[in-house]
């Protein structure tokens, strides 16, 4: 099993590097003095990786300044310099918000995000991950809007052997969460993972619904929800920043799950999110299987992005 994960990740990473390398062209391959166009190429490559125009321009400007000051002289210094900068960027936010609420029981994790990012699948994978660390988990099907979302989660719950709390379609998501927490308390379960309905962050009413879910969870368990993870599709462009901002403001997001990183997705938008919103990535989704969720590793991610392996 471990080998297939590695293989999958490698395939994903492979796709990622060829892309960046193609864009960055000679900048990373050349030796000798740095020329202006090398940094332009890096800027373009960052933009092409969805790192956002603002951040890409800033990073490129930093490099330009360092070239001007004589700190960077040779083209072969460019890649390590950029690599170090990107890892720092991701690391700086990693430290600032470690998962909280370990002491509370049950620990409540809320998965939020726009439609179609992979919340339901992530809920199942996360449940499996938690269980592997010896914790007992309950899944809550709080996506009561999308047709057959409950059935989808039920399939996963049966498959990985985790109990699922659900109500009818159209039920109040907060009520489902209330039930799930009550059930977890009754059974002495360690974790409640809540799958919520996908919603665009511009829909005020639906965002309000999340606030209610939060409130109900917080009333039942001190400090809940302890983790609110924004599930973000790695192919998302600059809108990912808006998503993180709005979900951050109303749902109290404290981490990101970057999904669909297999294939060609690059997920450079998380650099912009780390930079502007200080939100760390916690997990990456790399496939459709129940084991295809890996802890995020800044070094690995940046290496993949810059094709340094």
């Amino acid at each position: 099993m471990a080998r297939t994960i590695l293989a999958k990740l490698k395939r994903g990473l492979f796709m990622t590097h060829t892309e960046f390398l193609e864009k960055v062209g000679e900048a990373f391959r050349r030796t000798g003095p740095v020329e202006a166009r090398h940094i332009d190429q890096i800027e373009d490559a960052l933009i092409a990786a969805d790192a956002s125009v603002t951040l890409s321009v800033r990073l490129a400007d930093e490099l330009r300044a360092r070239v001007r000051s004589g700190e960077i002289q040779n083209a072969e210094q460019l890649r390590p310099a950029l690599r170090k900068r990107l890892v720092e960027l991701l690391r700086s936010v990693e430290e600032s918000s470690k998962p909280t609420g370990q002491a509370h029981s049950p620990r409540v994790t809320l998965l939020v995000g726009v439609n179609g990012t992979g919340k339901t699948t992530t809920a199942a994978k996360l449940a499996k991950r938690y269980r592997e660390t010896g914790r007992s988990v309950i899944l809550a099907a709080a996506d009561t809007f999308r047709a057959a979302a409950v059935e989808q989660l039920q399939y996963w719950a049966d498959r990985i052997g985790v109990p699922l709390v659900h109500q009818n379609e159209g039920a109040d998501p907060a009520a489902v969460v209330f039930d799930a927490i009550a059930r977890a308390k009754g059974r002495g379960a360690d974790d409640v993972i809540v799958d919520t309905a996908g919603r665009l962050h511009t829909r005020a009413n639906l965002m309000k619904e999340l606030e209610k879910v939060r409130k109900v969870a917080g009333r039942e368990v001190p400090g809940a929800p302890h983790d609110v993870l924004l599930v973000l599709d790695a192919t998302t462009g600059s809108n990912g920043i808006e998503q993180a901002q709005r979900f951050g403001a109303t749902a109290g997001v404290n981490g990101v799950v970057l999904t669909k990183l297999d294939g060609t997705a690059k997920g450079g938008v998380i650099l912009a999110i780390a930079e502007s919103l200080k939100l760390p990535v916690r997990w990456v989704g790399i496939g459709e299987g129940e084991d295809d969720l890996l802890p995020f590793d800044a070094d690995e991610f940046v290496d993949a992005l810059l094709a340094a392996s």
């Binding site: 933009i47 969805d50 192919t235 462009g237 600059s238 060609t264 690059k266 938008v269």
Partner: peptide, 12 residues
């Protein structure tokens, strides 16, 4: 295609 897709839209 998802309207929120970024640069990757071209390749897919």
């Amino acid at each position: 295609a998802d309207a929120m897709t970024g640069q990757d839209a071209v390749r897919s």
